[in-house]
Design a binder for these strands. Structure first.
Lengths: 216, 216
DNA sequence: TATAAATTAAAACGCATGTTTTAAATGTAT
DNA sequence: ATACATTTAAAACATGCGTTTTAATTTATA
């Protein structure tokens, strides 16, 4: 009888994990709609039908991919925001800085977790697909309310409706930066001779966002 | 022999115009990929094959829809930017205000031209389709260079590469605001009891953008 | 009015997608 | 070892898409 040794045990991936890993990489690169089940199953080296067998549908696979990150990220962000809320004074920049640790913490679930997650989130918002928008909104919704409230505390001079709009502008800039990030980094590298790592884009983004929110 | 009177002459739409009008409305609402030729030709009340007969392909139809607006908007924006460039001193806000007149001028080509155009532009960027990105970049590219230069004049303290990134963040926030504009206006109206016209979104957007670009 | 060109209509084509079905293989208990 | 459930494999299915083809019809031209 053949027994797996430790290394082989570690390497052994279930079909579902193979699918999740292959899918998230392709989704983050091409978007959800543009990625076919045949691409995914080929990359994962499993049978085409296994997506429907293990997940039920493509929709469910997409949500499973998102869930792996959301379940780690959202509670972490919530904690950070709550901690900040207990301070007696903070500014917009402090609020956005709350995203940094939860984001980089995603490298636990995957080596390039932080980048992948932001790309996925970007596509989730960019693609108008109802179910995805609803799904992410459901999971983002609770934290969003807290975020809105925290931002309002940081900027009491702005009315709630003003903050609502600015928060969504923030979301748009973030999403867009991630989705078109690879292309932009290429252009930037070509035009300015200076390579920019994916992680550094967020360092450029945060001051921009804080400036926008704080604007008169 | 039956002769059309003045009114009937004016109402008479060629098949191509029927297609362009039906297409732009559906594109602005659903995006380019999500809109099928069958939807378009049904809405336009023409035969399915007429898209390929008159335009050659769906791709060409999309570009024709964009061209109707770009050909009006881009020269107008260019003029405005050049005028501003001749002033000896101006700030970021002045640069973004250059977009207002060219944008509202689009109501000439269609009643809701300004809103439609921004939505179309939003989808053109949001959808990763190569040809659209290239096409709009080609037509946006010349003006983009001028815009980048003008913004740099307004903010000499920012390095060109910094300004490059911030300009793209600006684009992202704008695009996103338009694409998800209808949904957001709904939420805002429900949550804050205050209806926001599509045109007013840009009034909220511009201060945000200027603040972001000007950020330390 | 007769002829040619341009346009519209209807149907079919080729292709890719997500999903389902049916059969084989594998694993797991009794 | 046998019977059962789980998983994989291969093929087919149904659907919607952009496009092309062929024929009918309208419009323009001589």
């Amino acid at each position: 009888m053949y027994v797996l040794n430790g290394d082989e045990m570690a390497k052994r991936e279930t079909t579902q994990d193979k699918l999740l890993n292959a899918a998230e990489a392709l989704f983050a690169e091409q978007g959800f709609e543009q990625t076919s089940l045949r691409q995914i199953t080929t990359a994962a080296d499993v049978n085409l039908a296994s997506v429907n067998y293990h997940f039920g549908s493509k929709k469910a696979l997409i949500q499973a991919v998102m869930a792996r990150y959301l379940e780690v990220f959202m509670p972490a962000l919530q904690t950070k925001l709550q901690q900040l809320g207990q301070q007696e004074s903070f500014n917009t920049r402090d609020v956005f800085d709350c995203f940094r640790e939860p984001l980089s913490g995603l490298s636990q679930v995957q080596k390039h977790g932080p980048t992948l997650f932001l790309s996925l989130l970007g596509f989730a918002y960019a693609e108008i697909q109802g179910h995805l928008r609803r799904y992410t909104m459901e999971h983002f919704g609770e934290v969003m309310a807290l975020l809105l409230e925290t931002l309002h505390q940081a900027n009491p001079q702005l009315s709630p409706v003003d903050m609502f709009w600015r928060l969504h502008f923030v979301l748009g800039a973030t999403v867009f930066a991630q989705v078109s990030g690879p292309a932009l980094r290429e252009i930037a590298a070509a035009d300015f001779g200076e390579a920019v790592a994916a992680e550094q884009v967020i360092d450029r983004l945060i001051p921009f966002l804080a400036g926008g929110v704080d604007a008169a």
